[in-house]
Design a protein around this nucleic acid. Structure first.
Lengths: 214, 214
DNA sequence: GTCTATATCGTGATAGAC
DNA sequence: GTCTATCACGATATAGAC
């Protein structure tokens, strides 16, 4: 047989029981929330049984913490990767919006999962993730400060700027059932509306953050 | 004794057992969601016992439907009342933002309650509430169309306009634990940030929706 | 590692006394 | 209307066979 290195003694990630349970848990937790599902349901979704869930993760709560933490990490990374490139700040913001819509279209349930489950005490690990510090490390905040000093960018504190950008990208996904219900939109109509909305908020935020001189 | 009219044969709303349970249910459902609490917990919060909850409301699910529906109604009314006055559209939008922040400061958990619980099948009654029709009946959409024809307002479809306004007002409340966690804000710091943010989004939305001529 | 069987508990809902 | 007692069920978690 082949001799794998020590890091390969575990079975490959995709096919292992542990990984199957983790992926099932991700789907089920994301769709129904911690309180809305049972360990048995996760086991069934993974094609396993309850005992295995607790064998690998000790408890439903610990499994949840694992999933929640990694989801928060994905969420953060989706926002960060664009900042590390070396294009002008204006382009970064524009492409941030583009990427964020693209990412959320692939994970439309993620924002509401995070916003509601973050209220659990299981999930108060945000404080240890150094999210802002890691974004700061990309240098994008410094760029913003510089752009503000140079008069290219409006003088707004970084927290407000982040809230504005997150709000206009994430809200349509957070509120999609409400929006569909209020306006009686089909799924296709809603997707069309999303595209339109992305254009408007891009125009609005770019115009506000980077006002043209008169 | 006094002779109350037939509509007064029921005990006064505030003190009746039925009303106490309803108010307790509102608090508990809002804080923990349908799946996150039990009938017994609601009964305890009301100073009653489980049997009474089911005596008055037949089931946890029916009680929830009642609460959810009335919450959605409050939520809608909070957005509507300002539109019925007869001030210029620009002022209506400006004051809408002001009122919305004020309302949500008093009910900060309402947006996340609605956005997450609306996904339940218990709660798919939005379609029967005619929310948009009722807002349309205030005439505010017609005003917007007129303002757009007169060139005072940017030409944006009404759905996108509503999403933009809701997003920038509601998101800070939806995401408050995330924002506090990311930036390590105390409650007081967060409230200060809210005030600041309200000013920015007012400026941003007013500038975008009602651009000044050159 | 994986299974079945089980212990223990809390849930929603109701029956029946008062 | 209000209570206690109870039923039937499903939950989490674990013990122990293989």
């Amino acid at each position: 047989m082949f001799n794998f290195g020590p890091e390969m003694t575990k079975t490959p990630k995709d096919s292992s029981t542990e990984e199957k349970i983790k992926e099932a848990a991700r789907r089920v937790f994301m769709a129904k929330g911690f309180d809305g599902c049972s360990s048995r349901e996760i086991a069934r979704e993974a094609g396993m049984n309850v005992a295995l869930v607790n064998y690998y993760f000790r408890s439903k709560s610990q499994l949840f913490q694992l999933i929640f933490r990694s989801t928060l990490e994905d969420f953060l990374l989706s926002m960060m990767d664009i900042f590390e490139s070396d294009m002008p700040l204006e382009n970064k913001v524009r492409i941030f919006i583009e990427r964020e819509y693209e990412f959320l279209s692939r994970h439309p349930e993620m924002p509401v999962f995070i916003m509601s489950e973050i209220r659990r005490e299981d999930a108060c690990e945000i404080n240890n993730m150094n999210m802002v510090e890691r974004i700061a490390a990309t240098g994008v905040f410094d760029e913003a400060l510089k752009a503000q000093e140079e008069g290219r960018m409006r003088k707004i504190d970084i927290i407000s700027t982040m809230i504005i950008m997150m709000a206009n990208c994430q809200f349509p996904f957070l509120a999609s059932p409400l929006i569909k219900g209020m306006h009686k939109l089909t799924d296709e109509q809603f997707e069309q509306q999303l595209l339109l909305h992305k254009q408007y908020v891009t125009e609005m935020m770019m115009g506000y953050l980077f006002p043209v001189k008169q």
